[in-house]
Design a protein around this nucleic acid. Structure first.
Lengths: 110, 110
DNA sequence: CTCACATATAGAAAAATTTCTATGTATAAG
DNA sequence: CTTATACATAGAAATTTTTCTATATGTGAG
């Protein structure tokens, strides 16, 4: 499995915000419409819309439109990917970028 | 297991930066001194120092000082915690914040 | 068709983060 | 003691992100 840094940082940036973390949490039990999510936060509607858009772009949530309502729920794809990314990122590998570094000032103690 | 939102977002914010993700990657095979890490990046020394400080504060890396050198390596504690945080965050729970929301405009379809 | 409501988009203001230069501290060499 | 090197800290500049107001789109009710 190779590292997709672009997707990985997109996912991590989407997760790196208190509001979005809370959105994920209140969606953890199931689907909610945008207006119900909004009622939980002290934010304007376009701000929430922006956060939901970022989460959707990262495949952390998915939307289902019904009439004039938008129902949001978690998308397991993003969560699976970010967990896999972190695991791979922190694991040693033969093709690691560290192989490009030539020890200079200090003796390595590997 | 309960959710520590403060620690969780600290960890996720530390991970949400291309440079820091790359630092973690080049440390994945073992210990490196700060000057060797620096040689890999097109950054000034104080900037790298700042990134390493954030990673250390989040328990994603740890330092060992030896003479005038600082050797950095990954700290598994942060990685374990962030993976656990994400799993818990996205899992349904009896005490979820979603229970505080009273369905308003739209009929829930749970 | 007209109106009201739910949500999205555009663009500006505010806030947070990243990066830099300048400088300080600590350690080792001479 | 003086100097050089590795790294940290302080504070300013640049960039990115978050939030807002204003407005547009799309759907259903009447």
């Amino acid at each position: 499995m190779s590292l997709d840094f672009l997707e990985g940082t997109l996912l991590l940036k989407a997760l790196a915000d208190e509001t979005r973390v809370q959105i994920i949490h209140i969606l953890s039990c199931g689907e909610l419409c945008a207006c119900d999510i909004l009622s939980y936060f002290d934010l304007k509607q376009p701000t929430l819309s922006h956060h939901l858009g970022l989460l959707e772009a990262a495949n952390l949530v998915e939307v289902r439109k019904e009439g004039r309502w938008s129902y949001y729920k978690l998308n397991s794809e993003g969560f699976t990917h970010v967990q896999a990314f972190l695991t791979t990122l922190a694991s040693p590998s033969e093709v690691c970028l560290c192989k490009q570094i030539k020890p200079s000032c200090c003796n390595e103690t590997k």
